[in-house]
Design a protein around this nucleic acid. Structure first.
Length: 287
DNA sequence: CACCATGTTCCTTG
DNA sequence: CCAAGGAACATGGT
């Protein structure tokens, strides 16, 4: 599920559904999700609390609640496979329901097959995040400063959440393709025009993905289906969204949409990177 | 059995 | 202290 666009769409979807809802009790079914709290402590802290607002920062969901008159914040992260949705209290829980909030007639479910996700009252991770890519904080200057001392390949550097918050493995490849920049280029080797282009490409890539995700008829609300994994396909009845979704990611061996060259897959920092060897050729040396 | 998968943190090494 | 690389976490799909 989770890079910035997916978390953004989920946040917009859930915010009005959760606002004002009271938590009767919380069932932690997988302890590691709420570490460093114990399941008991976590549940006790939230029982009787009320959801006030939900927002996003990078790939984190930020839950604002009130508990006996006091404001508390809960940070959520979906890891690789996390999902969150409301379902009717009488419906069966999924196999990998990690944490279940009981809200009267509904349950708010955090499902996570691989259990890499987190729910924590420790919000300190937020302070280590770089600027929001879609905000004015993400200037070419800030971006340039973050890149200038790094010898890492730019693709790897884009996954560093202190550079810019919310870009993950899929959109890193997509943004570099859009900017016509080689994923292998050392971060500090990018010239001002490339940095400006990449910044713009990141913003457009994420914005397009949010726009796309907002138009897919998600259904987290307990009507049976629990769709929302709009990375790997579209919701039923919207077959052609996927075609235009990702331009290079997971397209190794397929023709580039610009020049028909074969898309390549390489491994960088133990993650797959996809790129077009023609459109994203390494910079020619000037002298 | 092999390898791959949307992410982060911790440990080591330089 | 910092940057960078790799393993670990855990489950499922192909």
């Amino acid at each position: 599920m989770p890079e910035l666009p997916e978390v953004e769409v989920l946040t917009r979807h859930l915010a009005p559904l959760l606002r004002g809802r009271k938590i009767d009790s919380v069932n932690v079914r997988r302890a590691r999700i709420v570490l460093p709290d114990s399941p008991e402590k976590f549940s006790r802290r939230l029982s009787g609390a009320r959801f006030v607002e939900l927002s996003r920062r990078g790939k984190y969901l930020v839950f604002d609640l009130t508990a006996s008159g006091r404001k508390i914040q809960l940070l959520g992260h979906l890891g690789m496979t996390g999902r969150m949705y409301l379902q009717r209290a009488k419906d069966a829980l999924p196999k990998h329901a990690a944490v279940v909030f009981h809200l009267g007639a509904h349950n708010f479910v955090f499902e996570d097959t691989r259990y890499f996700g987190r729910l924590t009252f420790d919000t300190s991770a937020l302070s280590r995040l770089g600027p929001e890519p879609l905000s004015d904080q993400f200037t070419t200057e800030a971006f340039s400063d973050a890149l200038k001392r790094s010898t890492q390949p730019i693709k790897v550097k884009l996954l560093d959440q202190s550079v810019v918050a919310g870009v993950g493995n899929i959109y890193a490849s997509e943004a570099l393709f859009r900017a016509h920049i080689s994923p292998r280029a050392a971060a500090h080797s990018l010239k001002p025009p490339q940095i400006a282009r990449l910044r713009q490409a990141i913003r457009e890539t994420l914005q397009d993905a949010v726009r796309h995700g907002s138009t897919v008829p998600l259904n987290y609300s307990g009507a049976g289906e629990r769709d929302g994994l709009f990375y790997f396909g579209s919701a039923p009845g919207t077959p052609d969204f996927y075609e235009e979704r990702l331009h290079v990611y997971d397209r190794a061996g397929k023709p580039c949409i610009n020049c028909s060259a074969r898309i390549k897959r390489i491994v960088q920092a133990a993650r797959s990177t996809f790129y077009c060897p023609e459109c994203q050729a390494p910079q020619r040396k000037i002298q």
